[in-house]
């Protein structure tokens, strides 16, 4: 059934067909409802938005920017990390700069080269590791460290329903339920907030297709390219399997995430006892005496000096 006399552009799993205006309203309401339902944002915040320049983070920024304009006590800052991936990040950063400049959002850019002395492309020539492993460690490290330096109260990311659904199933398949205990729409909150800046996922209940449609309609889909290091075989397999199931049984992804949310409090309770140390070298959070970022920096240093 069509929502109105305007041409429909998206069909919901319920069968309802929404026009451009009603889809935008539906999408933004869904994000605001997610924020309320999971208590993601308080009355007064200095929010950071981890901005890659891709459709997900630009959509989060676009919506939180609207929220900030309605509520002056909610301030927003965008943080972008330049890993140094040639032919990819330069273009997405340009999109990020362009959006922030047009929308008067303060953008902070930090690079691996300036912070660690090497960009990711150089690191991968020195160390034989999976690109996403080392990149993820350094990106998380910088986002947390810089968020603390900027005195951000929370950091919003562009993770969507598809991302979460894939992570839930991947953790099940790897028998790593402790990792699932760290998922959810808000993470890091129960930990030591002086060490971790809490992360929030406003797009938690939005499918990747919905986010793409919203980004397309709102002119946020300019830089639509894929990281050359992205194809991780396992995640890609899980993603393809989920998309096949979703095509045959619409609503599958939502059901998986929704049922996971009912078990999440039990998982958080079971795995809450983990001790978080402080890295002896950089004072960032660490599961051992030295954090993973410092371990890899040491390996890189040794290889360069050898």
């Amino acid at each position: 059934m069509n929502c109105c006399s305007q041409k429909p552009i998206m069909e919901m799993p319920s069968g309802e067909r929404l026009c451009k205006t009603h889809f935008t309203e539906y999408f933004e309401s869904k994000v605001f409802n997610t924020i309320r339902k999971f208590d993601l944002i308080g009355k007064e915040e200095k929010l950071g938005i981890a901005l890659s320049g891709g459709k997900d983070s630009l959509s989060v920024l676009n919506i939180l920017n609207k929220l900030s304009k309605q509520n002056p006590r909610i301030k927003i800052n965008a943080i972008a990390i330049n890993e140094g991936i040639s032919g990819y990040r330069d273009r997405t950063l340009e999109t990020a700069r362009d959006f922030c400049s047009k929308n008067n959002v303060k953008l902070h850019i930090f690079s691996y080269k300036e912070e660690f002395g090497l960009n990711l492309d150089d690191m991968l020539k020195i160390l034989k590791v999976k690109p996403c492993t080392i990149c993820g460690i350094f990106r998380r490290y910088l986002l947390n460290k810089k968020s603390k330096e900027l005195k951000l109260t929370k950091l919003a990311t562009g993770h969507n329903l598809d991302d979460e659904c894939q992570s839930i199933l991947m953790n099940q398949m790897r028998n790593d339920i402790a990792a699932s205990a760290r998922l959810g729409p808000r993470t890091g909150i129960t930990q030591n907030e002086a060490l971790f800046v809490p992360r929030i996922k406003p797009l938690y209940l939005c499918t990747e297709k919905e986010v793409t449609a919203y980004a397309f309609i709102n002119g946020l889909l300019d830089s639509f390219n894929e990281c050359p290091n992205a194809p991780q075989a396992f995640r890609a397999n899980v993603r393809d399997m989920l998309n096949e199931l979703e095509q045959k049984n619409p609503g599958t992804k939502y059901s998986i995430v929704n049922s996971f949310l009912q078990t999440l409090p039990f998982l958080k309770e079971k795995f809450k006892g983990g001790i978080i140390n402080i890295c002896s070298r950089c004072s960032e959070p660490a599961s051992n005496g030295v954090c993973n970022a410092c371990v890899y920096l040491e390996k890189l240093k040794r290889k360069v000096e050898a």
């Binding site: 041409k7 429909p8 552009i9 998206m10 069909e11 067909r17 451009k20 890659s52 891709g54 459709k55 997900d56 991936i85 990819y88 997405t92 990747e208 297709k209 986010v211 793409t212 449609a213 397309f216 309609i217 889909l221 639509f224 390219n225 894929e226 990281c227 290091n229 992205a230 194809p231 993603r239």
Partner: peptide
């Protein structure tokens, strides 16, 4: 303009098929 799966196609239509899957 976005179009739905049951939209009829016309001769010489220029169609864009954009992937929703991104990475990084």
């Amino acid at each position: 303009e976005l179009i739905l799966e049951d939209e009829r196609l016309k001769d010489n239509d220029e169609i864009k098929i954009l992937s929703v899957i991104s990475g990084g």
